[in-house]
Amino acid sequence: MVARVTRILLAIQLLAAAGIYLLLTRYAGLHGKLPAALLAVAIVLLVRMTITANNFGLSWIYRSETPFDHRLGRLAALRLFLIEYCASMVSSSWTMGFCTFRDRPGEADTAPVLLVHGYGCNSGYWHFMSRALSRAGIGHYGIDLEPMLASIDQFVPALHARIEEICRQTGREQIVIVAHSMGGLVARAYLRDHGARRVLRVVTLGTPHRGTGLARFGAGENVREMLWTGDAENGRCSAWLDSLARDEDAALRPLFISIFSHQDNIVSPQLSSHLPGARNIEFNGIGHVALGLHPRVQQVVIDAIGSAA
């Protein structure tokens, strides 16, 4: 479903560019075809850039205090924005729509890895992470969580079935879960329901473990379950997140590695990704979508998989 929606949105953008081109050439007096085409595409790209800028603006409202050694200068902030914009464009306009994920058994003697995507995405999000894991010889597998707007609890049976299937295929007793954003909450809900018999380690990237204020601008039951209300100091998470924290086994928290960025433009407050009892790894200068595409984050994930035992 997400792949279909991604293609439809891309088609709409291409039609918008074509319409702008016609307006420029027929009514705006711009006679050169190439300049008109370039300007039409630039306008569409500018609209997409405005959406990314809006996300950063909204995240500023709910932001948590950034530690001094993670603060950015102007040039670093501009680089952060441009990298996140490019990551969003590539993911939403290409990999999620056209890069079908295939199981990739590995060569390295490591546990198989299941990649779990986040809200509004599919397994195509992991295209670049998959290439990094393949270069490291690590076997990895994907899953598509549907329907897109369902409750997080509704994704747990599909995750459970996929984990059992991977264990049967590989002959391994346990796997490593690498999850982005909402996918980390699905993994926690799975452990709450099924325990850690099949799970060696869970690595989460930009997961809103205590919710995010930007969830109020999304759609779906899962978005309401990820909601953070109020400011960073005095706010509160959703009843679902409170229930998850209350019902899960705290003794399993050392299985988790939570990777997050102090400049996350979707998870805000950013310290919502700090998971008590887990190993928390902080980055700066990386946006939410870019986390799974960034070489430094990919290397940390590879190291975490290799050290799981």
Rank of each mutant, 00 (worst) to 15 (best):
T170L: 05
D69F: 05
G285Y: 00
R210I: 07
A309K: 12
A290S: 07
G213E: 12
A150Q: 08
A187Q: 05
V113A: 08
A53Y: 10
Y125N: 14
I152G: 02
Q174S: 11
V156A: 01
G139Y: 10
M182P: 09
R246Y: 00
H160P: 01
D249C: 02
A304M: 03
H180S: 06
R168N: 08
R279I: 03
D264V: 01
N55A: 10
S130W: 03
V90M: 09
I302R: 03
G32T: 09
P208K: 06
A136H: 11
E225V: 01
R7K: 14
F217M: 11
E282H: 03
D144S: 03
I166D: 06
S134Q: 15
D231I: 05
G97P: 12
M226K: 05
H127S: 07
G195C: 02
I257E: 11
C121S: 14
S88R: 13
P112W: 10
F128N: 08
V113S: 07
L45F: 04
A196C: 09
Q154N: 12
L271V: 02
A18K: 09
A196K: 04
L39G: 10
R197E: 12
S88T: 15
G29S: 09
V267P: 01
L23Y: 14
C86Q: 15
L10H: 06
A309P: 11
R26P: 07
L58K: 14
R253F: 00
T50N: 12
I51V: 15
L255C: 01
V199T: 06
H70G: 05
R168K: 11
S134P: 03
H194K: 07
A239I: 06
Q154V: 08
I281M: 05
C121F: 13
L22S: 13
L10I: 11
E282T: 04
G195E: 00
H288M: 01
A179K: 02
I266G: 00
L58V: 13
M148W: 12
L205D: 00
R224C: 05
L24R: 11
A3P: 08
M96H: 04
T229H: 09
L39V: 10
M89Y: 13
L58G: 05
W240D: 03
H288L: 04
A232G: 02
S238A: 06
G287N: 00
H31K: 13
G97T: 07
A232N: 06
L15W: 11
P208D: 04
L9Y: 10
M129E: 00
L252K: 02
I8E: 10
A3E: 12
W60E: 15
G218N: 15
A136N: 07
S91I: 14
N54T: 13
D109R: 15
N284D: 09
R104Q: 14
I257T: 10
R162S: 03
P276K: 00
F98H: 09
M148C: 10
I177D: 04
F256D: 01
Q174K: 14
Q299A: 02
H127K: 13
F81T: 08
V199L: 04
S123T: 13
G306M: 10
S272G: 01
